[in-house]
Design a protein around this nucleic acid. Structure first.
Lengths: 148, 148
DNA sequence: CTGTATATTGTACTAATTGTATCATTGTAT
DNA sequence: ATACAATGATACAATTAGTACAATATACAG
């Protein structure tokens, strides 16, 4: 079984509960096609082991996603992305996932004591250099960053 | 976990409140590099037990430090030193930490398939709404803009 | 093919750890 | 004596972990 490794990056100091981070990131990955309808997610225990958290924390995240019909959890079988995410929800989800990601980023930056101006400037600069790098070599494909 | 033992010397006769002494000494240790950003502090109960004081006294000290964003307390999780660099730390370090943070954010956003334009727009919007929220009513009320 | 044992998977309930809120007690200055 | 600040006691809330269980799939004996 090709279980999605589901590369999630948790920040244990961010102040956001682990389960919220898991929910957000799975939503993001679905909204952007990294996860697709029908995909099987890792089992609660497998993902928990990978993330070094208790499997009930993952189960809680899965349950939240299940409640909004984004995934379908089936006892004894596994957890799957729902087949038909309502199309109008899809774009909304995508937008929300970027909102959540950005929110996390800005919140963290402010927590670190940076000003609005500094953050805005840094984002502009970074986006610009990123774009330049991508112009020469447009390969979104191999953008799977590896972690240990 | 490597909980900092956080050797604090309390003077019960000094006339300074315990919580003030705790606040001062944690600030000192942070300024001297004994405590570093990201470090987890002892729990209110653990430190209280070690210092032989009530845990609410420690909680009070932690709350004061939290209000000035020196530490970040999270119910159910613990207490951590913020990444906020002390004023005497070089501007270079400060810049580097924002660069790294932004880099991670943008990298993640692109990995999720968002475009440069989407990311830029979302950051602008978020910064704007954040500013507005802070302008009209900072519910923290304790907006210490006075640096010490 | 069928029935049963076993493993795998999610669920439910509970416990433990952490910080928060509120009020009571104590000590001291006026 | 009164007022107020410091500290302590108690109850609560949020997060995560532990344990037992139910549903399903799989392997295998017959």
């Amino acid at each position: 079984m090709t279980e999605k490794s589901l590369t999630l990056q948790l920040d244990f100091h961010s102040g956001l509960p682990i389960y919220t981070q898991i929910v957000n990131q799975i939503q993001s990955q679905l909204a952007n096609g990294i996860l697709k309808p029908g995909d099987q997610l890792p089992t609660v225990r497998a993902l928990a082991s990978e993330l070094r958290v208790n499997f009930n924390t993952v189960a809680r995240a899965y349950r939240m996603l299940d409640e909004v019909r984004i995934i379908s959890t089936q006892q004894g079988r596994g957890t799957f992305i729902t087949e038909k995410p309502p199309p109008e929800v899809s774009e909304k989800l995508r937008h929300e996932s970027l909102t959540a990601l950005t929110h996390r980023f800005i919140s963290e930056a402010f927590r670190l004591g940076f000003s609005e101006r500094e953050v805005g400037q840094m984002v502009r600069d970074s986006l610009k250099s990123w774009k330049e790098a991508n112009d020469k070599d447009d390969e979104q494909e191999s953008n799977q960053e590896n972690e240990k």
